[in-house]
Write a protein that binds this DNA or RNA. Structure first.
Lengths: 236, 236
DNA sequence: GTGCAGAAAATCGTATACAATTTTGCCGCC
DNA sequence: GGCGGCAAAATTGTATACGATTTTCTGCAC
């Protein structure tokens, strides 16, 4: 299977066309096929997807609202290059909201949900053992899906959307500053969290979640790089 | 004076033109000059601001990402008409994040910040005693500014942006479902929260914040209205 | 008078065109 | 050879144009 839902959801909001392009580019960014700092010219995007600059522009705009793309006036759009400070804020935000989301999710979780989570976990573990960049990419996504699914279960679509943004941006941060080969989350920690939820030990589950996020962040090297202008020169 | 800041801030991100239009419309929505359900046709918006449909469309798109405007394919954009369920989610999200924001803000608050908050409080109180719709609108904004300022003080720009969205959408919800004449927040509760922060009683401050949000929500009448289609007919 | 078809009007979706700005390359000058 | 400056190229900002879809209006049949 490709990658879960193919973007068949609500066909009744926003621009039809730009949506698909946005999703495609976002997926490419999250899966790290597009590196931070890469220039995304409107013409190129348009040609790539066989649409006019109008739609390409709309897609890039949308991505900039999500923080995945930064557009500079009269200069164009680039895959976001989050600063260390920005990275800290992203994880700070996750520490702030994820325990709350977890509690809400636990409050109305069903056996089906738990089965779903364990299913994700299994998939994640399978991908971890595999070699190759494709598996690595899928693993990144699967790892994020755990956090996203929790938000889904919580039933609050606003928090769900916010978490989608945070997870996507986290992927960018990890791509930039991650050190360990273990590309993303500690896999076992996800399982521990599910178990704690199942055992109805909410406080412990939240603690585990906080540690989990801390572990991800601990794997980052957030030292300030020299000048940003210089840096970009190398990225291009 | 026209309407506070004329939109002169960071001139170096996004589309220049559409930004101003977006801000102007958002302000109109938050201040309740535009009612939920009002149609915002691209042509009308464009004519109103003397720009082409292109920019008008971009502005409406941006607002739809913030949840203030809902665009329906091939039908147009409307000032969002949040459902009771959506309203509940908005306040649920606020209960979830605002205590955390408060803690972060308290962790690095300066005397200047406290002075600033008290200043806001004073302004808010002054507006509350005034009569007239203009004062009422200013009061709505001032009331939101308290929560926004806390997010600002927290130093996390991501949470700040999220809170901006939540406060703006809250204004829509209150406009739709609010009952009491006291249009927005309990003014005194803001003061209590500041005092608790000053006294370094964080737990109490968080409790106060939660109660405060609960009070706002308690003033809403979130009973389901009949059919949504019928409702819209009356809104148009 | 009511109801339904079909045309006209309005509005959105997308592409293209043109203006403005930035970037790049070239040439003369020091 | 290096440094400024001007012109060409590329790219974005905005407007206009055209096709598609929805809505509204009209008129005819019942």
């Amino acid at each position: 299977m490709k990658s879960a839902a193919k973007a068949q959801q609500a066909e009744d909001s926003a621009d039809t066309g730009a949506q698909q392009i946005r999703d495609a580019i976002r997926e490419a960014i999250v899966e790290r096929r597009l590196s931070p700092g890469t220039k995304l010219s409107e013409s190129d995007v348009g040609n790539l997807f066989n649409v006019s600059r109008t739609l390409a522009r709309a897609a890039l705009q949308a991505l900039s609202y999500e923080g995945l793309v930064s557009v500079e006036k009269n200069r164009g759009a680039f895959v976001a290059y989050p600063s260390p400070e920005e990275a800290r804020q992203i994880f700070s935000a996750r520490r702030l909201v994820e325990p709350g989301i977890l509690r809400e999710a636990a409050a109305q979780i069903t056996p089906d949900d738990i089965a779903h989570l364990r299913q994700l976990l299994l998939e994640e573990g399978r991908l971890m053992s595999e070699r190759g960049q494709t598996a690595r990419r899928a693993e990144i996504k699967a790892s994020g899906d755990f956090h996203l699914t929790l938000a889904l279960i919580s039933g609050n679509s606003i928090m769900q959307r916010f978490m989608e943004e945070l997870v996507a941006r986290s992927s960018l941060v990890i791509a930039l500053y991650g050190q360990s080969t273990a590309s993303s989350c500690g896999h076992s920690e996800h399982g521990d969290i599910i178990s704690a939820i199942e055992a109805n030990e909410l406080d412990r589950a939240c603690q585990l979640m906080l540690h989990h996020i801390a572990h991800i962040e601990a794997d980052l090297d957030l030292r300030e790089r020299k000048s940003l202008g210089l840096k970009e020169a190398f990225e291009l």
